[in-house]
Structure formats: structure tokens, C-alpha cells
């Protein structure tokens, strides 16, 4: 769907983006992650043709980015807002027409969305008369009214109350099911794991990691497991015999014990468990999967170390 090739953007001496390449598959929900200032918004603005890259090319659906491509893109900026004094209906119509919709089509689509989100009665209201949550619903409709193939959401849930966030999340998933590709940009890395299938990590204007969420997680598995034990022989605790694994931690709770182990190289979980079984009663075993946040930290530290 979207091919970003070697994009660089410089503001004076400062690099906003440094040779960033990304492939965003059609129909994916793509998480664009990174701390504030990593270059996410700069990249999004380039995709939206708000600014142009210094070097590099972007292909949308196989074609180099053209000005009428913006009609296929829906963009919800992080810094968003609407005309406070303008009536909601007129405002939606204006924004839809700016996206290239004809007046009649725009009217029809706006009405359909208003009915769907149960806000039909708002047509003649002004934005300033609405609550923040309501404004965001309106803003979301404005983003997707022209049925774009590519929807770019920059921190879409910031400022949303949980109820409205849920509604919007469902709408996003539905649009994705209908075929829209979604780029979801955020600095809150934990929030993407449930939503995204692909991600890219940006840090200090560079891409440091990208790929499908599953692949990345597999690659960053630490071979650690959490094992819960009951009835450990108190005199012999913690488990002493461990040739197949290292013990990361051992915690004594009132009813049971929690053991975190890391497998040694070439060992399997089965082998480790076989070692433990004679020594304690196992009640629970689970793999410790690293969070995106952990992966990010690990990757950043790794890059730092490489430099040194």
C-alpha cells in the first residue's frame, strides 16, 4: 500500500528524519511507534504532503505520491480541532468537499455517519457547544468521511474518555475490515499490541526496527518463563539443581512461590521442567513475552552500546 524509501528531512542542522524506509502492507493496522520527537509526525506530514522530504520517495499503491492522492488519505492530526463558531453540519460538508467529495455525496455520507453515531440532532450546533468527547467523535467522522484507503491516526486516543475511545476503536477495526489500511502513530507503546499487526519503531529520526508484531516478538523472546510452585521443601528452597536454566528471581508468596527462569542455551522448557518436577509441585507455567516497551528499550540500549 505505502512504500517509503530513504526519506530524509532536515530543519536547519536538525534531522527530523534520517534515511527512513518503511513498507506498510495493504489492509494492515500499522503502528508507528517511538518517543516524542522521534520523527513520527514529520513522517506523517510528508505522507500527507504537508511538507516535502529533502530526499527519498514515497509510493502509494505503486505510484509516486501525487497531489490528488490526498483524496485517498484520511488524517487525524495529533493537534486537532475544528472551527469553533461554525455549525457542525456545514463544517463537515466543507471538510468533505475539501477532500474532493461532491456536495450531494458528502451530504449523504455525513448524514449516514451522524445516524450511525447517533448525533443526527447536532447538525445546526456549533462546535463550541459540544463536550470534548463529542467534538472528537465529529473530528473522527471528518477524518474518514471520504472513505479513504489509507487512514492516518496520530495519537487518536489522547484525550478520549474510555467509552468514546472504545467506540472509536471499534470503528477503526471495522474500517480496517472493510479494507482500509491504518497507520496508528503513538508514543504509548503498550497500547499498540492489541490493535496493530505491523509496527515500526522510530528513535531520534531513525527507524530502528520494523516488521510484523508476531515476528518481532518472537525475535525478542528472552527464553524466560514464569513458573508457579506449591509445597516447596522449605529447607531446600530455592531450587538448587538447575543445569538447564538460570534463576532470575524467586519470590515467596503466602500460598505459593513464583519462579522466573531463563533457559540456558540449547535447553528446552521441557528439560527445565523435568529438573524441577522432582523438587516441587508445579501449578502454573507461562512464557514471559517482552512488551513493545521492553523491546524498544532493549533495542535503544543495544544501538547505544554498538556506537560505544
Amino acid at each position: 500500500m505505502l512504500d517509503i524509501r530513504n526519506i530524509s528531512k532536515q530543519y536547519g542542522q536538525y534531522y527530523a528524519l534520517n534515511d527512513v524506509s518503511l513498507h506498510i502492507p495493504r489492509g494492515s493496522i500499522f503502528g508507528l511507534l517511538g518517543p516524542n520527537g522521534a520523527g513520527k509526525t514529520s513522517l506523517i506530514r510528508i505522507i500527507n504532503q504537508i511538507t516535502a522530504p529533502d530526499t527519498g520517495v514515497i509510493y502509494l499503491g505503486g505510484e509516486p505520491l501525487r497531489s490528488n492522492h490526498i483524496e485517498n488519505i484520511g488524517y487525524l492530526p495529533e493537534e486537532r480541532g475544528l472551527y469553533k463558531k461554525m455549525k457542525i453540519g456545514e463544517q463537515m460538508l466543507y471538510l468533505a468537499q475539501l477532500k474532493g467529495l461532491r456536495k450531494q455525496d458528502a451530504l449523504q455520507k455525513i448524514k449516514a455517519w451522524f445516524i450511525k453515531l447517533q448525533i443526527e440532532s447536532w447538525w445546526d450546533k456549533k462546535i463550541e457547544d459540544l463536550s470534548k468527547g463529542m467534538q472528537q467523535k465529529v473530528q473522527f467522522i471528518a477524518t474518514v468521511i471520504h472513505e479513504p484507503e489509507l487512514i492516518i491516526l496520530d495519537e487518536p486516543f489522547s484525550g478520549f474518555d474510555p467509552v468514546n475511545a472504545q467506540i472509536i476503536q471499534e470503528e477503526i477495526l471495522e474500517l480496517n475490515k472493510k479494507g482500509a489500511t491504518i497507520i496508528y502513530s503513538t508514543h504509548r507503546m503498550e497500547s499498540v499490541e492489541t490493535l496493530c499487526d505491523h509496527i515500526a519503531l522510530l528513535n531520534k529520526s531513525k527507524k530502528i526496527l520494523d516488521g510484523s508484531v508476531r515476528e518481532i516478538k518472537n525475535a525478542y523472546k528472552s527464553q524466560s518463563y514464569k513458573i508457579k510452585l506449591a509445597q516447596v521443601d522449605k529447607s531446600s528452597s530455592p531450587i538448587l539443581t538447575n543445569s538447564k536454566f538460570d534463576i532470575s528471581s524467586f519470590t515467596n508468596f503466602t500460598d505459593d512461590y513464583e519462579l522466573i527462569i531463563k533457559l540456558k542455551e540449547d535447553s528446552t522448557l521441557n528439560q527445565a521442567l523435568l529438573e524441577i518436577i522432582p523438587q516441587a509441585k508445579i501449578t502454573h507455567v507461562s512464557e514471559i513475552i517482552p512488551s513493545m516497551h521492553d523491546i524498544f528499550i532493549e533495542k535503544v540500549t543495544q544501538i547505544k552500546n554498538e556506537k560505544n
Binding site: 500527507n48 504532503q49 504537508i50 497531489s67 490526498i70 488519505i73 488524517y75 492530526p77 493537534e79 486537532r80 480541532g81 475544528l82 472551527y83 469553533k84 471538510l95 475539501l98 477532500k99 473530528q139 471528518a142
Partner: peptide
Amino acid sequence: IEEKVSRIVEVIISSVKP
């Protein structure tokens, strides 16, 4: 200033050139 303060400007310029 109104467009900038109300933050609608970025929505608009994703549709038209500044």
C-alpha cells in the same frame, strides 16, 4: 490565529496546500 489556536489548520492543510 483562530485556525492555528483551534488546531484545525493541520486538518485543512492535509487537504489543500498552505
